[in-house]
Amino acid sequence: MKFILVMAIIFASLSSFAEEKVTIFVTMTPAGSFQAVSKKPKGNLIKENGLFTADKISVSIESFKTGIDLRDEHFWKHMQSSKNPKATLTGLKAQGGKGVAQLEVNGVKKPVTISYVEKGPEVLAKFKLKASDFSLPKAEYLGVGVDNDVNVEVSFPYKTR
């Protein structure tokens, strides 16, 4: 019985969870674009006295989908998913619409500056990256490449303390 009660406490906190999503906006060369989307980021985002913090938010590289199966496989391979299966954001601190964190991709850690807005029970955060900063090689397939600069959007629910 106690077990159930304890579970119920967890449910109360889980039930407010909205949808988690990471979207990477990729520009192709010579032209065009696609989005790589994952709906499986994991972690905890805490809001306390207006300050957002997260020890770790991670996402599996192979959870990203681009709309074309072969392109998914190439995306995962390019991101070296077999060696570094996750991208991880750690040490997030954000307040007043701006924040900083450490982002690790392909085994390389770099600081990122984030802007965000609160939307109900979740936060919508945006930041820009250069693929080359994470030792990712230039991506090109049969003459069609992708821009080094990518935009990332993350929507993630938070818990209030």
């Binding site: 192709m28 010579p30 032209a31 003459g143």
Partner: peptide
């Protein structure tokens, strides 16, 4: 997501022979 014909065709305005990437897009 292919806004420009140049991704898949040798002719930047489209039509005519497909390049290697265009062939792969057609297949996959």
């Amino acid at each position: 997501g292919y806004t420009s014909c140049l991704n898949c065709h040798f002719n930047p305005f489209g039509g005519g022979p497909l390049n290697d990437y265009g062939r792969v897009v057609a297949a996959t």
